[in-house]
């Protein structure tokens, strides 16, 4: 952030109602908490249908609470993107569709100009994304452009194996071939593209191939979900940022032996749950800011 410490800005903004300090010295381009020309929100890993009260006793209320918080923002985001695992998986195709429909109805209450969705493995891996596409009408991978940034949504979840696949990599190669090298790119995907921790299934087997294709572009940022906690990593110049969940946190690698859902802390309700505000613009790296769910 230009001229102001980002944490300081967070304090100034106060979260419940974000105030964008475009008049602050050194913040001429500040239009979002990361200091970009615009901002968007990333909401991830809703796992709608999950109902283990010892982990989240407010499993039915956390998403509505987040939606209300977004709607209360003074500075509306340009768009919201849901980065997968909208629903908790189920073998029952009817229940899967019902859960997705409920998510669709709840998220339709977002008072923002545009909402983008894509699937996680809980949504898509058991039927190759059939129910997801029926409900949300989105393809599993797509691109869009917004205020000078090229957004690429990659699907590493609709195959039961955590892969992108040759066909999609060829699609990505063809898409990138149309861009100039100085084109800023934001990649949105569910699983980490880099090999974060394959021992816990936190990887995309052929994710490195996508990273290799993106390497020639100097301004690339990847936002993803899946791991249910905040993590920031770089593969060379490419930044990778994982998002918080809106249902249950997962303990980071190194803190527990096995992949573990973090139990509810009554002394700090909703701890580890939240969403993300991203400041973005064509002349800067997209910068995330985590926003906790408040009790």
């Amino acid at each position: 952030m230009d001229g102001i410490d980002r944490r300081e800005f967070i304090k100034l903004a106060g979260f419940g109602g974000l105030v964008f300090a475009s008049g602050l010295p050194g913040c001429a381009h500040l239009a979002g908490p990361g200091g970009g020309d615009f901002h968007f929100l990333q909401l991830s890993d809703l796992h709608w249908g999950y109902n283990i009260a010892s982990v989240n006793p407010d499993f039915a209320g956390t998403l509505p609470k987040a939606i209300a918080a977004v709607n209360s923002l003074d500075q509306k985001p340009d768009f919201v993107v849901f980065t997968g695992d909208l629903t908790q998986t189920t073998d029952d195709p009817k229940l899967r569709r019902a859960r997705m429909q409920q998510v669709r109805e709840m998220t339709s209450k977002l008072n923002v100009p545009k909402v983008w969705y894509f699937a996680g493995e809980h949504d898509a891996a058991l039927d190759r994304g059939e129910a997801y596409q029926e409900t949300f009408g989105e393809t599993l991978r797509y691109t869009f452009d917004h205020k000078g940034i090229h957004f690429i949504v990659l699907d590493n979840t609709s195959d039961p194996a955590p892969i992108l696949g040759e066909k999609q990599l060829e699609w990505l190669r063809a898409d990138l071939a149309k861009l100039s090298r100085d084109q800023p790119i934001v990649v949105l995907t569910h699983r980490p593209l880099f090999s974060m921790y394959p021992q816990w299934d936190w990887a995309t087997r052929d994710g490195q191939a996508a990273i290799d294709l993106l390497m020639p572009f100097p301004n690339v940022t990847v936002f993803y979900g899946h791991v249910h906690h905040e993590n920031h990593h770089r593969t060379s110049h490419i930044a990778h940022h994982s998002a918080l969940s809106l249902m249950f946190p997962l303990a980071p690698v190194g803190t527990v032996e096995k992949k573990t859902q973090v139990p509810w802390n009554a002394a700090a309700p909703y701890k580890g749950l939240g969403y993300r505000d991203v400041g973005a613009g064509p002349r800067r790296e997209a910068t995330p800011l985590e926003i906790p769910v408040k009790a």
Binding site: T90, D91, E121, L126, T157, P160, A161, P162, Q199, D201
Partner: peptide, 19 residues
């Protein structure tokens, strides 16, 4: 040491604990 083995093909609601 202690080394994880896991199912890495998504197989359903209990997939995340299949290790």
């Amino acid at each position: 040491g202690r080394f994880h083995y896991l199912c890495d093909n998504f197989c359903g609601d209990g997939h995340d604990r299949m290790s």
